[in-house]
Design a protein around this nucleic acid. Structure first.
Lengths: 254, 254
DNA sequence: CGTTATTTGTGCGTATGTATT
DNA sequence: AAATACATACGCACAAATAAC
């Protein structure tokens, strides 16, 4: 039943993974042209249809764009920040250039509001509080809440039990690694709120200051909530950015 | 050169359009099962491959989900608010249940900051200010800025020249209709800011109150900025929501 | 300015694998 | 075990856009 995020047996996904890596690692830097479908098909010993299927993925993910009659091109790096917070993968990769520092260790607690948002029967759940540092500076204060069945699987992680411990991970990444299945979706809401005093201390702003509040509720494959994360961002240090695209965007570009 | 958003000549997109309408209009309400690939293929006189291509679109857009061995199902309505602000199409369709009321008519003005964000040589541009009403209540105050070449094409629209005029459109929709080509992308940034006094008056909140500020910079097919929109939302009346999904999400879903 | 070669886009047929019932 | 339904893969033909001649 357990599925892998990596091990892609299927041909088109193996090809997509390889091409994605090559585009990301600037093998085709500066908007260079990729090999044609026919070339990739023969060099990878697959049919042209399989190449096309792989390309579909990369276009959807914003790594490349295609122009009929001209070819396939690596997207500019600045156009690639589509991949910064527009999909689940982006959230899982959030830790690449930031650090998590525990404020309140993982513990069982009662929180009626969080429990109802997690659709729990009881009011008891697991809770963790931390801040996220970017080059040493605190940018965000986060509380995560998990159903008992999920929270239990995190109790053996020493870094989450120690105040002040720093790690380069994301909580949702740890959760997914311990799950039987994948995180497939998250509902995200963004609003403005008055920061609670405990959080204000941690990210060096005045209590009650208006901060950017981003809530995310993550779901597993069976549509069950596995994590509620409440994030407080100081707007002086962080702006939420996404690139929106036309969905069947098959267009000329530059 | 001009392309149509609607006129889908191609078979798979015609099928996708029809199925999307049917799902949206609750023909398959409440998570009902859609016909199988084979059934759709024979009833629409296309190959099963064409049906699959159409389904790929709908899955990507969040209208349906598929389970191997079981079938294709209409997504719950609540899972469909993916289509609320996650793509360019969503922004173009924003007007379906809201109204635009002109505060300051379209006029030529000088704005150094906006001009530089639109990458203009000169500081002169077209500017329009309005508020957006939802069931009569003001939810948002917006200023849009356009390069002279684009703004000029909007000057013949009487609704944009009259203070207090109400229309059920979006500015970016009007712009696209007058363009030679499509809007293909938008960079969006969300932060918190102190509302300027002019805007505060219009949406009934105190000057200097912390509001949700959403900026969007729209691009045409040649990557040229055609509109900068600065939106101020009262967080009591509006929360920005999106559903994030795993990109190649082919999963079981309840 | 048309012609031609290249490259991607669309459409169909078929075979086989895998998940669910 | 069998039937059903979606997933992957390959092959081929032709259309449409682009660029070079």
């Amino acid at each position: 039943m357990a599925r892998r995020t990596d091990g892609a047996k299927v041909a088109y996904r193996m090809l997509a993974d390889q091409l994605r890596d090559e585009v990301a690692s600037d093998v085709y830097a500066g908007g260079r042209r990729l090999p044609t479908e026919a070339e990739l098909a023969s060099s990878h010993r697959v049919s042209r249809q399989t190449v096309r299927r792989a390309m579909q993925e990369l276009v959807a993910e914003g790594y490349v764009y295609r122009v009929p009659g001209r070819g396939t091109f690596a997207a500019d790096r600045k156009h690639r920040y589509l991949r910064q917070l527009g999909s689940i993968e982006d959230l899982l990769n959030l830790a690449v250039d930031s650090e998590l520092e525990v404020v309140t260790p993982l513990q069982r607690r009662v929180d009626i509001d969080a429990a109802s948002r997690l659709r729990l029967d009881s009011d008891s759940l697991y809770c963790l509080t931390f801040r996220r540092l970017h080059q040493g500076a605190p940018v965000c204060h986060t509380s995560t809440f998990h159903p008992p069945a999920i929270g239990r699987t995190l109790t053996d992680i020493p870094e989450l039990a120690t105040v002040g411990a720093k790690t380069a991970t994301t909580i949702i990444g740890l959760v997914e690694a311990r799950m039987d299945g994948l995180i497939v979706a998250a509902d995200q809401s963004i609003t403005v709120g008055r920061v609670p005093p405990e959080a204000a201390r941690e990210i060096q702003c005045e209590p009650g200051a208006p901060l950017l509040r981003i809530d995310r509720l993550y779901y597993d494959e069976r549509d069950r909530p596995v994590e509620l994360a409440i994030n407080w961002y100081n707007p002086d240090m962080y702006t939420y950015r996404v690139r929106l695209q036309r969905s069947q965007h098959r267009g000329t570009r530059s």
